[in-house]
Write a protein that binds this DNA or RNA. Structure first.
Lengths: 282, 282
DNA sequence: GCCTATCCGATATGATTGTTTCATTCAACA
DNA sequence: TGTTGAATGAAACAATCATATCGGATAGGC
């Protein structure tokens, strides 16, 4: 029991989630859906939000190992104030200063990156994403994951989106295939691999439009691209942050889908239905 | 009065602070000292914390322009849980909110996610990352990229970090190999693939510690994990945001490197030098 | 000194809370 | 078909809450 006392409400719910009866599960869903906020609600409110009886509430909290609802409420309130400024101050170990400082930095680069976006370029690039017959994507290292991510989002609502093999492999053979109807999206956060400029030059030579996403240390590269978006990557910490680039990628996907209109939505729904049929997700 | 209704409790207090009688001022101080959390307390708790009578509580909230305490409590809750899924649901279709709205949402989920991290778990998990003999990583869909990203960061300063094949492929053959000295890191943002719970159960059965990174819609999964970090993913837009999860991954990498001390740094420098020799980067 | 005004907390009151009880429903199984 | 067991909500219940009332206390003006 002493052990039990330390565990959070969410954890307790997850532990027993499979065995929960219907009504209690409905209630559990509501609780999980309002993280940390449990203490702000009365049990009556929670149960009515879940559409179950108050009795179900009492039963659930008993099952989770609480003597009564108030015990759960207090626990929720205490663990909640862990992250509050007040608590941080009290502990004052650089440990916590580290995490909140880290968060501040993440937000800073995010804001800066978006503030410096060129809206005209953004508009044109989005139009191109929808208009392009085929889209190719590339990037190495960290950028490799970004490219994969964006591709995954785009294929939710349009076809013919491909990731190219990492630069340095056998990318050469693809080059001859590029046409002005295509679009090449290049993620090139540092550290970039050598030879990227030559690749871009070749693609540009074939008339294909190029969308480049890179960071402020890029030199020369933007000269080859039709549209360039610069995201910040440098914070005080050792590894670079590619959060801003990820956010930008998501924005591109969302906005492109939005502009794609009914056709894109139809595709999205088709994919969605396919997933359901295959019962692939859970 | 209609205008009054929108103003926050703190503002109202400050406006009348000079005119407040002693007992009500004591109570006001307590309220100002626990910002945002007002909704988590009953009026009785607040007054007893302040060492005043309950009557003083009623009088204060009347003076601040509330019809009763409950009105103040609801206001506090709503302004705090602004943006919580529950609240969003109520607002429903806010599909298109422009680029600055998009950015705000990204920042919101980022902040919320970090605010709800369990610092104790974080501490333990970081220790485990450095102590583990081998680290395995897995994740599908969006989570696949996150897993790849984190692996890439970790191998900068330690060896034996592997990504497992996407669930559903031939992961089975790996299962028998897990030992308590290893660590499995699972990224499981929705949509998750079916069968994940069985995998986790099997790994847990072999005594391997499990670090789970998921979102609030995870049900039951955290029951199998030793440490669980929940990051928010839902904004008003179509696709989920995995920015918070990415930031968390980076934080894990940075902090783990920091704790690894000289040994980790040495490894990092060795990798660095290797890169230079190969002139791989530019 | 007296009066008035204000502030304050103990007590009483009514409203609302969370819990328990209990009858009903439904599925599983003999 | 009948029986058992779990699950569920309506209603009764006790506990706790927020509010209203009231008398005591204090301070300032006259």
């Amino acid at each position: 029991m002493g052990e039990q006392r330390a565990r959070s409400i969410e954890t307790r719910i997850h532990d027993q989630y499979a065995e929960l009866p219907d009504s209690e599960r409905k209630l559990a869903d509501v609780i999980l859906g309002s993280p940390g906020d449990l203490s702000a609600y009365t049990a009556t409110e929670l149960t009515s939000l879940a559409g179950v009886s108050k009795a179900a509430g009492t039963r659930l909290f008993h099952r989770l190992g609480f003597a009564n609802y108030d015990e759960a409420r207090l626990l929720a309130r205490d663990t909640r104030s862990w992250g509050s400024p007040l608590y941080m101050e009290r502990k004052s170990g650089l440990q916590n200063l580290g995490i909140s400082g880290y968060l501040d930095e993440e937000i800073r680069v995010l804001k800066n990156s978006f503030a410096n976006l060129n809206l005209r370029d953004l508009d044109q690039a989005l139009g191109r994403i929808n208009a392009a017959r085929r889209i190719f994507m590339t990037g190495s290292r960290n950028s490799h994951f970004l490219a994969g991510y964006l591709r995954w989002q785009l294929i939710q609502f349009r076809g013919d989106v491909h990731t190219l093999p990492t630069i340095g492999e056998t990318l050469g053979e693809y080059l001859g295939d590029f046409t002005p109807d295509d679009l090449l999206i290049v993620f090139a956060l540092r550290r970039r691999v050598a030879g990227l400029d030559n690749i871009l030059k070749a693609v540009k030579g074939r008339g294909s439009p190029i969308l480049l996403i890179t960071d402020p240390t890029a030199r020369g590269l933007p000269g080859f691209a039709d549209w360039t978006f610069i995201t910040e990557v440098q914070t005080g910490a050792v590894f670079d942050s590619c959060g801003p680039a990820l956010s930008l990628a998501r924005y591109l996907a969302i906005e492109a889908l939005h502009r794609a209109g009914p056709r894109g939505r139809a595709h999205l729904e088709r994919v969605e239905r396919q997933h359901e049929v295959l019962n692939e997700f859970k």
